[in-house]
Design a protein around this nucleic acid. Structure first.
Lengths: 164, 164
DNA sequence: GTATGTTATGTTATATTATAACAATCGTCA
DNA sequence: TGACGATTGTTATAATATAACATAACATAC
């Protein structure tokens, strides 16, 4: 589990390592990380916040890529199938997946102030969901867990400015 | 907690009791459950499945209500503020809230086969989310928990037809 | 009971998010 | 090379949601 989204960190490193990782995975799986797919993944990782499809599309357009909606949605579909990103349903935005090796659905903390997203992978949450589903005889396929609130960094900033 | 959505039950009773309940709550809170708001709530409860805004709008139109999108979205906003319904973010659809007295966010089981939704209120899920949030110093405001899979009824049906 | 402010609704237009459908191109490999 | 599947291009449209401003209904102080 990576837990750095809300903290200062070398994000350039995040991007390049995510891309390297993605290239490796796609090679292994014998699927094609084409230029537009790779660029979309880079743009997603470059953004410090979850990014919407049409914002991606605008960036692609500036860079001379084809810029009709299907282009970006196809890339998002591909990346999603490969587990390289997650869609945040409550805000219709996309984030890179921190751990694309093992299939999973993310659990997310979304900060209302800085709009950054932190992916979690809590065993407890997964277990609690499984227990609830089992109690109802429900067979769980996938899930969406999005917690909206204020991250530690933004809470600190708020406290600082209050103290003055 | 109510756990009947996936099981056969007297749904007419669900609808009327939900409306009676809503009327009481709105009276207590001194807010107005106007005709269009009440009708939207009824339509939501009448539907056995989560229902979309434009489907509601079509029903309202047939009944002679004003039928421009703001009408239904305003009603949905009101009902949501009063805790009388939940929005299922992953499918852009709305369901009546089983327990509008106490403010909460629902946890939902969504069946891929019959498309019904079951609201849960699991203490374990809530606790697991709180623990995860606390670990990250994250102040939780609200959340979206949607589990997609197959409900017991539909699993049974599938097994039955397999057995033949 | 009427002026006034507030809440709710009507109306038009448009923003935002996403997909359908079909044509053209690219890659691969027999 | 030619045939096939995968990918991309292109046009159009579907589906979901909100902005902005006008009008009407309701509440209440005077």
């Amino acid at each position: 589990m990576q837990a750095t989204a809300f903290s200062p960190h070398d994000h350039t490193h995040c991007i390049s390592s995510a891309i390297t990782h993605a290239k490796g995975l796609c090679a292994e799986r014998d699927v094609r990380l084409t230029p537009v797919r790779q660029r979309v993944l880079e743009l997603i990782w470059q953004s410090h916040k979850p990014i919407g499809a049409y914002e991606l599309l605008a960036s692609l357009a500036k860079e001379g890529f084809n810029s009709a909606p299907p282009t970006v949605y196809r890339a998002l579909d591909f990346l999603s199938e490969q587990g390289l990103l997650h869609k945040l349903e409550s805000i219709n935005a996309y984030v890179g997946c921190c751990n694309p090796d093992t299939p999973h659905q993310g659990h997310f903390l979304l900060c209302q102030v800085c709009h950054q997203a932190q992916e979690l992978d809590s065993q407890y949450i997964t277990l609690a969901l499984k227990v609830s589903a089992d109690q109802h005889g429900f067979e769980m396929h996938h899930h969406t867990i999005e917690v909206v609130g204020t991250c530690q960094e933004c809470l600190n900033k708020a406290n600082m400015s209050e103290a003055t």
